[in-house]
Nucleic acid binder design. Sequence first.
DNA 1: CATGAATGAGGCTTCATTCAT
DNA 2: TATGAATGAAGCCTCATTCAT
Lengths: 222, 222, 222, 222
Amino acid sequence: METMPKETFHKLSPDKKKKIIDRFLREFSTNSYDDASLTTVVKSLGIAKGSIYQYFDGKLDLFLFLQSECAAIKAKYIGHVKRDDYPDFWAYFRALYLEGLRFDLEHPLESNFLHNLARHIHAPSLKELTKQWFDQVIEIMCKWIQYEVDTGHFRNDLPVKSMAFFLYTVSISIGDYMRTMYGLNLEENIKSGKPVYGEQRGRILMRAVDDYINLLRKTFEK
Amino acid sequence: METMPKETFHKLSPDKKKKIIDRFLREFSTNSYDDASLTTVVKSLGIAKGSIYQYFDGKLDLFLFLQSECAAIKAKYIGHVKRDDYPDFWAYFRALYLEGLRFDLEHPLESNFLHNLARHIHAPSLKELTKQWFDQVIEIMCKWIQYEVDTGHFRNDLPVKSMAFFLYTVSISIGDYMRTMYGLNLEENIKSGKPVYGEQRGRILMRAVDDYINLLRKTFEK
Amino acid sequence: METMPKETFHKLSPDKKKKIIDRFLREFSTNSYDDASLTTVVKSLGIAKGSIYQYFDGKLDLFLFLQSECAAIKAKYIGHVKRDDYPDFWAYFRALYLEGLRFDLEHPLESNFLHNLARHIHAPSLKELTKQWFDQVIEIMCKWIQYEVDTGHFRNDLPVKSMAFFLYTVSISIGDYMRTMYGLNLEENIKSGKPVYGEQRGRILMRAVDDYINLLRKTFEK
Amino acid sequence: METMPKETFHKLSPDKKKKIIDRFLREFSTNSYDDASLTTVVKSLGIAKGSIYQYFDGKLDLFLFLQSECAAIKAKYIGHVKRDDYPDFWAYFRALYLEGLRFDLEHPLESNFLHNLARHIHAPSLKELTKQWFDQVIEIMCKWIQYEVDTGHFRNDLPVKSMAFFLYTVSISIGDYMRTMYGLNLEENIKSGKPVYGEQRGRILMRAVDDYINLLRKTFEK
DNA sequence: CATGAATGAGGCTTCATTCAT
DNA sequence: TATGAATGAAGCCTCATTCAT
């Protein structure tokens, strides 16, 4: 049975809900799961510590909720992007990121949280969870790639799962890539509470995506 | 110059040293830096807590020692592999991993620790350190790639640093790749203290490397 | 602005607050700052260790609070004693101690803590703090003495600061003086939790003050 | 029965003995008794920790030895200064400090240790000890003053012990006085191992003594 | 006699969680 | 429902002292 957030949380005013979610996203974006401190967040939010336990079943439940929440929001952006509407995989891939970019610009905190998910993922407390999430992503990517292989666009000399894993690995690294190549320092902004918005970020993201596509196209195509 | 471990530690019987190192490698292989607990290890080793501080300057010193120790051991394996001795980059790359494999089979704990280094890398306590390490690796890989570009083997339509980052990202993922593709569950063995050896592991690693090379060859070559 | 104690502490029942303050005053009155043990106090109070950190920001914060608290209470006693209301400095000086005596009788623990402040003063952890406090006291005393020099009551053949230092040194020794001359053993009472009250103490203190004035009068006057 | 140092210590080469004593004097001159760390000293001396326990019965025994050692050395300087050789007490007093000054210049570490004794004196671990030492000093000073009273040089309207205590208090403050008035920062030199020598120090000390005599003369005389 | 590794108690502090109000 | 004080386990680290070599 999933608890996720308790009813009490949903009954909060949207404003308060948002404030709480945002602050926790910030915390989990700048600290490892085990290092993130409810105490700190609660203090800076000015709400009672106990309230968190009225809203959630505990730290883990809260974290899970954030994850699913972010995923859900993102899904609203990229959910309607269909492979069929694009001439090839890379156009599709690019479109996905372009939608992701809109999500990123309108929900920078959520976006960043998702980009950093991978780093939480080995926390012992999240083991089980992690595996499920990872398996899901891989499965989806397998389907993508299988389709391209079947339609003769992608090479067929390698296990599809290998390619999916490769694509996955590369995809989740795009945050670090931007950091490394373009000197973006999101974490600092996030930590200090400054806005993470900025069209510059959008340009950089798409440039990064194009760099990736350039590389990956040759990796995967026949 | 850094202290790393104190003399005291080096004067321990090889057996005891090994026991301590191994147990800590295990701990840091299954927990994030901040979550790894000296207390737990010390208890399971049956030695006094204070002793650790006779051997090391603290948690960080201990961690750094493990890292440099593992790196030093690995260097003995891959240090003599020279690019010039191989017809192309991939043969060189493969040779590196082949030597790495010997290291892996003979020092599975150390190997695993190194494979998992990346996951410690975002720990707040290791921030500074991490950046240096990362920069070094990228720099080395840049040189590799620059050479191939200069000699006309690699494409030249992309920034070398992009390619280096890509290679880096992919390289450190090989542990996860083996886990994913071949169901290797090292962590469980490590945690439970079971041996991690096995020739099966070697076969798998080289298969993984070949998979990677197959992918990367097309990614990078002209 | 300083935190001193957190709100939490102020919201405790007066009884509990007093119990905690008293016990800590006792601890810091019988131990040097670094040697005073939160653990010991907490155990003897029968409260959880963590609670202290709900009340204060740490050992230093706690110590500073005690100091400012005691100083504030004492200020309520001696604050309204004005030089102008007295014919000469020594009458003023005596009046200050007389008020101090009332404070002492009604707040023996606080009084003792203040008398012993000087002994904490060289604790390495309090270095910075200490210097400020010392400088303040000297400055005040310099003003006192300068006034007497200007009005022709005190000798003018010595640097005012020398005289201030002298007065300071002598003033803070009055606790030891009472111990030495009149066999008062406050510390033992304090440590054992016995009451430190007693009108006898008052008589002794004023006798000590008169002894001091007798000495100092000649030291300072023209 | 007094242990003081064990025979083993006396059998050491004078050089080694001196090195050990000096280093410990430094430690106890810059830290409170409880805060002074054998571990630190032993490390910086490069000798075995266990050795200390071959030389002394423990921290306390070591401290006591240092005290008696310093006192003994100082006694060799001021021991032969006799009241009878001087026209009045202050000439005598000055002569004592002048000899003390020679001691100070030739044994700055020992001198400083003695100057700072007072600050160790309230350490719980030293309680008993302290009282004895203090009583001795007071007793000596009582004799001095009694003599001056008897010979009609000092006032007789105050208990001799009061005056002795006063003289004591003032005398032990001379170190702090130099620090305050003349900005001497011995501690830093001591801590950093730099020499504490310097004729400047001598000049300052005698100036301080003259300041004190100027004050005290009027305090005590008829 | 010298060594220095081992000890383990004790230091301060942080944390997620509970529960009475 | 909201609060936030209380909890106590666990964290890392330092220390004086002991004792086998």
